[in-house]
Amino acid sequence: MTMLVDQASHLRSLVRQTRITRRRATVIAITSGKGGVGKSNVAVNLAITLSKGGKKVVLLDADLGLANADVLCGIDLQCNLSHVIARRKELSEVMIKAPGGFSLVGGASGLARMADLSDADRQRLVDALAELEDQADIIIVDTGAGISPNVLTFTQAADHVLVVTTPEPTAITDAYAVIKVICRRDGTARDPMAANDNTKRKMSLLVNQARSPAEARVVYERIAKVARQFIGTTLFDAGSVPLDDQVPACVRRRTPFTIASPRSAASQAIQQLAMKLAAGVTPTGDGGFFNRMSRWFRK
């Protein structure tokens, strides 16, 4: 219990230290090479933990067409981003307060049209979302899995990209693939010096469902070595979340594990991740997330 209190106090201290005089939110895009690695679960529980640490957090469920953050939170949404794009709702009408204190902008589930937006629809989404940057300290974007245009647009525009994988060989392969595509799209893969430039977004790897810290470290080192050697990219170590029976149990109950089981191993790992991100993520300072996102939509 003392350890948890100390960690929470440390997180709040880091939050105070990293506040700067700006109203542009810092944006963390959470993505993965393949589905089923726990990306959305990480996003939801990270949002809760950062909120408890004193941050104003908005979670944007940008897994357009297969959104499920609302399910993980036990929320039944009446409206979502599809209503905003269709001009049937304003953003303020679809953003709701979620368990743990963060604000959730839900995506649509089961709508193929949302998974493959037209340029006009994506621009409408940019216009609607721009106002979020004045309402939050941190915006967490839960992207879809893979390398679709929707996914790449969000990752290209973020301050920090957190790639989630598991120790499974297919997940590792797909994680490296998405890292390679993101870096090649913004040019850092062709210029190793640019990949290490502090003005560029940071990219880190989180190993989920790890059987041990040693296993997670092997996975990180394997991907980081290949990324450095073949695409000249520095991949930071975000740590790991252990395989924990409390996680699937909480998913079945539709309750975030950091709320239902705050002393579990997985919850403590998310606490450590939140502290790393609170200490190390800063805006890139080039006009704001959604301005950058708009430029990528027009490419």
Rank of each mutant, 00 (worst) to 15 (best):
V58F: 06
K225A: 14
L77Y: 06
F102I: 03
T155H: 05
A177M: 09
E90V: 06
G100S: 05
A210F: 02
R16V: 13
P192I: 11
A29I: 03
V126A: 01
V5K: 13
R298V: 07
N196S: 15
Q135P: 00
L205W: 02
A266Y: 00
I20C: 15
L59Q: 05
L60W: 06
G54W: 07
G36W: 14
G288S: 07
V44Y: 02
D186L: 14
A278R: 01
A157C: 07
G110Q: 04
N80E: 10
A214R: 13
V27K: 07
G239V: 01
V178M: 06
G146N: 02
S240R: 06
V84K: 03
S32L: 12
D127K: 00
A112D: 12
G36E: 13
R122D: 05
A177E: 09
R22N: 15
F290W: 10
N196F: 14
N198C: 13
I147L: 12
T49M: 11
I85E: 00
H83E: 11
R122W: 02
V181D: 10
G36P: 14
A177P: 04
N68D: 11
A98V: 03
N45W: 03
A227N: 06
V226A: 13
P99L: 02
A29S: 13
A224I: 10
L81P: 00
S267F: 04
S267G: 08
I140H: 01
A266V: 05
L125W: 00
F154V: 06
R222T: 14
A171T: 08
A260F: 01
T166E: 09
A158G: 08
R22I: 14
N41F: 00
R211D: 15
K56F: 07
G146A: 03
V151A: 10
